[in-house]
């Protein structure tokens, strides 16, 4: 997902009886479906976990601009170029909403940005994969935005008010992205033999990385259990992955493309598809910074930040001068 393997307190979930009255009131409010707002009391662990999660989500939107940005200058029609540019611009907007939501928890965007650039904070593993042909713009919209929606739709009901509200705005745009991606995929899959080949190749390369987006099984994870009790995680990773496969497999059929998994087949009994797990060793390698584009992505972000320093400084200096001049005139 856009936030993967977010660590929580690492302690087990405590029962209401084990909590002091303040924390108990907090938990009861969440259990009743209430929202927590920035000025409300909250346990330290809740605040820290949320900062990690929202921050990682925001960074994913920002780094996520790069693989698609890679094709903006090569988009094949004026309309496709406008749609792709608008999409990548939306992702920057998502980053902005999410940084704002995180800032209500007492961190600054600058600090989070520095932690991204130094590699201390993570972003989703998926954005460490390269986009090699135009069909990848289809695959990313269809699969990556599609997988993101799986987890972001339930997050509209998350317990932290500013996060939930950011998700409502984001989800509207994400479903649009997903449809646009599918539309590209359809054109490619029904196009010339070369286009069809690109479409199948894109699906081959993005299928397992998309499954990895949900993270490894967290049935046993204490971190996930705590996050779920706090309603900042709404479903288990396996649950969401299953839902994603169940939705996507028929779409691949419709496109006439083959999902690269010979074990993929409908299981009547469970009412869902059976499918192969992705290579989790590869996933952990990517998280460690050994994804195919990990170095390039961070290099890119660092370069933009470093080369933009004089601009940010100048804008601040100009604003200061204007303020001083206004004061002097008063």
């Amino acid at each position: 997902m856009y936030a993967q393997m977010v660590k929580s307190t690492g302690e087990g979930v405590r029962s209401l009886d084990q909590m002091d009255p303040q924390e108990r009131a907090f938990q009861e409010r969440i259990d009743a479906g209430g929202k927590i707002e920035p000025k409300d009391w909250m346990p330290d662990g809740y605040r820290k976990t949320l900062v990690r999660q929202i921050g990682q989500h925001a960074h994913s939107e920002i780094v996520g601009q790069l693989p698609e940005g890679n094709w903006i200058t090569r988009a094949p029609t004026l309309e496709r170029k406008a749609i792709l540019l608008a999409k990548v611009q939306d992702e920057a907007g998502h980053g902005l909403y999410l940084y704002c939501a995180a800032e209500t928890l007492g961190v600054t965007r600058d600090q989070m940005t520095r932690d991204l650039l130094s590699g201390k904070m993570k972003y989703s593993s998926i954005f460490n994969y390269p986009t090699l042909t135009w069909a990848d713009m289809g695959a990313v919209g269809w699969l990556v935005d599609g997988a993101a929606i799986m987890n972001q739709v339930p997050l509209q009901r998350t317990s932290y008010g500013p996060y939930a509200r950011a998700m409502v705005r984001i989800c509207k745009e994400e479903s649009f992205h997903q449809r646009q991606g599918f539309d590209i995929m359809m054109k490619m899959a029904r196009g010339t033999p070369e286009q069809k080949r690109m479409a199948q190749d894109a699906l081959n390369r993005f299928w397992y990385p998309s499954l990895m987006m949900f993270g490894p099984s967290d049935a046993e994870s204490v971190h996930s259990a705590q996050s779920m009790a706090w309603k900042i995680k709404m479903n288990s990773n396996d649950e969401l992955r299953q839902k994603f496969v169940d939705l996507t497999a028929p779409q691949a059929d419709y496109l006439g493309l083959t999902i690269p998994d010979e074990n993929l087949k409908w299981n009547e009994e469970k009412g869902g598809y059976d499918f192969s797990e992705p290579d989790w060793d590869e996933f952990f390698d990517v998280l460690k910074g050994n994804g195919p584009c990990s170095v390039e992505r961070l290099e890119d972000r660092n370069r933009a930040w470093d080369e933009g320093r004089w601009v940010r400084e100048a804008m601040l200096a100009h604003a200061d001068k204007k303020r001083a001049a206004k004061l002097a005139a008063e």
Binding site: L66, G69, I72, V88, Y99, A304, G308, R309
Partner: peptide, 10 residues
């Protein structure tokens, strides 16, 4: 459009 994703601030 060449700037996309590389501007000095968001």
């Amino acid at each position: 459009s060449e700037w996309c994703g590389h501007a000095p601030v968001l």
